[in-house]
């Protein structure tokens, strides 16, 4: 979207649709970023409905285990740290992208993926512990809501990991200029997952473990 003019909605932007990404200006003028942002907002609404479901069902234990008995806050703190660090390392990749440092971008993307993988690993460990204790999704409405909300977030992070892997290869093949728009979209996706996680650790884990 051109910013040298007024932001009149009638501005015909349709002819800009990613015809080519060879020209940096055209690549950056792509409406894809705003479009992807709208997608992310709709994704946030999906999480909003899952949060609402969890909020409604959070005390429906059906005689099963309660959050105070199940949640291990040190593990969640570790996971939160992993995701927060992966956000700042993605920021470093974006800075290197703007400086045109290809190796730096690949390095920081790799670090980000590593922390993301640690997050998913710890989450799977937590889930397997819960299931081993008999706290399965089918045990109570509270646990159904919990696994749906936290699991959906975990699936998003896993999808982000695949995307990061693809981008590490693709920036090597096609260069930074052509990958700029995709890296920016991936960055927004990754940072939004961290924002959703703030909601998860606050409303599910911290509030759930209060006496």
């Amino acid at each position: 979207m051109s910013t040298s003019h007024d932001t009149t909605p009638a501005e015909p932007t349709f002819y800009l649709i990613e015809e080519d990404a060879h020209d940096t200006d055209a690549a950056h003028a792509s409406p894809a970023l705003l479009g992807f942002w709208i997608y992310l907002m709709s994704d946030a609404l999906i999480f909003a409905t899952l949060f609402a479901v969890y909020g409604v069902l959070a005390t429906s234990y059906a005689g099963g285990p309660t959050p105070q008995e199940l949640f291990e806050l040190p593990l969640i703190a570790l996971n939160t740290a992993f995701l927060l660090i992966s956000s700042i390392t993605y920021g470093m990749a974006m800075l290197d992208m703007h400086d045109g440092k290809l190796r730096g971008v690949q390095f920081w993307l790799g670090v980000t993926a590593l922390f993301g993988a640690c997050f998913v690993g710890v989450e799977l460990y937590e889930f397997s512990n819960l299931i081993a204790e008999g706290a399965t999704p089918q045990r109570s409405a509270f646990l159904s809501g919990f696994f749906t909300l936290v699991g959906t977030h975990g699936l998003h992070v896993s999808a982000g990991l695949v995307w990061i892997g693809v981008m590490i290869v693709q920036v090597g093949q096609r260069g930074l200029v052509e990958s700029r728009r995709r890296l920016t979209c991936l960055g927004m996706f990754w940072h939004l997952l961290d924002v959703v996680w703030i909601g998860v650790f606050t409303f599910v884990y911290l509030l759930g473990s209060l006496p």
Binding site: M1, T3, T24, D25, G91
Partner: peptide, 12 residues
């Protein structure tokens, strides 16, 4: 480099 990127700002 940053001038034409005002459309989508990025951080320092």
């Amino acid at each position: 480099v940053d001038v034409h990127e005002a459309g989508h700002s990025h951080g320092s």
